[in-house]
Amino acid sequence: MSSEFVTDLTIFVLSLLVGFEVISKVPTTLHTPLMSAANSIHGIVLAGTILIAATASDLVGYVIAFVACVLAAMNVVGGYVVTDRMLEMFKPPAARKAQSVSANGSAEVTR
């Protein structure tokens, strides 16, 4: 067992503990955006898929790397964009008031 592995294991365990602490303080109302945010963070796997592409040397390797890159990039980009769309709706009350006044009386909200 290498010392590098022990270092990695230390990082893993401490990161788990940080995750528990940071998350447990988030209010219920933000849980769905939070799940989405956490979902985009595990898109970091894109870094891994880029690294494996470099070691590919045959067709099978390239195909696996390509599919992995597609999936990971989808996770990262889609994840952050959809989280931002959700959070965009939690505007400060002032901005929200102005908007609801301007939209006052409009029966249909097309989207």
């Binding site: 990695d8 990082i11 893993f12 365990v13 990161s15 788990l16 503990l17 940080v18 995750g19 528990f20 940071v22 998350i23 939070l34 956490a38 979902n39 963070i41 595990h42 970091i44 796997v45 870094a47 891994g48």
Partner: peptide, 13 residues
Amino acid sequence: DVLITAGALVGAS
């Protein structure tokens, strides 16, 4: 490292 850190964060969350 960064995969381990980010992955563990999400695992805990």
